[in-house]
Amino acid sequence: MAATGHNAAAEAKAQGTGLKVIAILAVLTLVEYAIAVTIGKGPMLVTLLTVAALAKTWLILQYFMHLPKLWNPDGGH
């Protein structure tokens, strides 16, 4: 974290991370939708959707909500 004024390079790097994460999230969402229309109802679908939702949650918690800062306050991007 830059504590002293504008640090353009660091900011650009952090914003780039955001773009990568949202791209994966978007792909996962489309995959969810696609398997739901193709596979049809059943335990297989529930399992796959759960896996996808957990993956999305991990991405958001890890990169958007900075979960690791909870035990490592000075870490992060």
Partner: peptide, 18 residues
């Protein structure tokens, strides 16, 4: 989902004084 990205960008921008 997209609004989460803009929220993330906003936070990052503020942290860097933008």
């Amino acid at each position: 989902l997209l609004s989460s990205l803009t929220a993330y960008r906003a936070e990052t921008a503020f942290e860097h004084g933008n």
